[in-house]
Design a binder for these strands. Structure first.
Length: 251
DNA sequence: CACACCTGTAACCGTCCCAT
DNA sequence: ATGGGACGGTTACAGGTGTG
């Protein structure tokens, strides 16, 4: 086994050489591995294939959910969001007690675990919008409502420097994970001044299909603006805009 | 032999780099 | 400049291999 004597410490693989750190220091060796067709066919890899199947299902589920709110995500997500969401989807799937290993899915899992998920790690709703809100999901009526009583923006919104205005946004999504389709609706307030004057009561009503049999998701977010010479500009390209899953009705 | 640590598999997307 | 390709990050698992 090769031993690295130089000052350059590496971790990972370059070409066919793998570098890693062990308790004996930094080592390097030839890349190893398992032939792909063995993982695909060898009975010994049954567990591994089951993991793969569920992991893949989690990735797809995340994609459908993201697609449902793509427009909002454009203004409020970070580069690691996809992998964080995949992690959570795996957790959801692992809560499925109906199906056997490898066949577990989101629908029979605990989609409620996704409640509280933050789409933008550098602008979390939980540490931005302190005004209390209530989320109401009416499955029969097919409505997902975010209600925020009147509040003073300066006190209840921790806005990034440069903010002059903000907007509260919401989305309701009815997601069919099985068929990878969705019905979504989004609502937003007008652009409001970030000042000491109380807002009006905010009631964002998102409509999807009445009596749906699919999981329902309510997203709530905030977008920041800077007013320059009467024009509204998204603040720092939306780097600090927040968007989170406010409520989930898994069915 | 025990231990440590690697790899490939699943789906997806942002972020690089490189070549045209 | 633009497009394509590679890679990292997300989970859990089993097998392979060098070290001590």
């Amino acid at each position: 086994m090769a031993r690295q004597k130089g000052i350059i410490k590496l971790d990972g693989t370059i070409g066919d050489i793998t570098f890693y750190k062990s308790k004996d220091g930094y080592l390097a060796r030839e890349k190893g591995g398992i032939p792909a067709d063995r993982i695909a066919n060898d009975p010994a890899f049954q567990r591994t294939r089951e993991n793969g199947a569920e992991f893949g299902r989690a990735g797809k589920a995340g994609k459908v959910l993201r697609n449902a709110i793509r427009a909002l995500l454009q203004n409020a997500s970070d580069s690691r969001m996809v992998s964080r969401l995949t992690t959570e989807m795996v957790r959801v799937i692992q809560e499925d007690v109906t199906n056997t290993r490898g066949l577990r899915n989101v629908i029979d899992g605990e989609a409620e675990l996704l409640a509280g998920f933050e789409f933008n790690i550098s602008g979390k709703l939980g540490t931005t919008l302190y005004a209390p809100f209530t989320a109401t999901v009416d499955r029969a009526a097919g409505t997902l409502v975010a209600n925020i009583p009147a509040f003073v923006p300066l006190n209840m919104v921790a806005a990034p420097g440069g903010t002059t205005h903000f907007k509260i946004v919401s989305a309701g999504a009815e997601v069919d994970f099985e068929n990878e389709s969705f019905v979504a609706d989004s609502q937003a307030t007008a652009i409001l001044p970030w000042d000491a004057n109380p807002t009006a009561v905010i009631n964002l009503n998102n409509a999807v299909t009445a009596n749906s049999t699919h999981p329902l998701f309510l997203m709530l977010g905030i977008e920041f603006y800077q007013q320059v010479n009467g024009q509204m500009y998204p603040l720092k390209n939306g780097a600090y805009n927040a968007l989170a899953i406010a409520d989930v009705d898994g069915n």
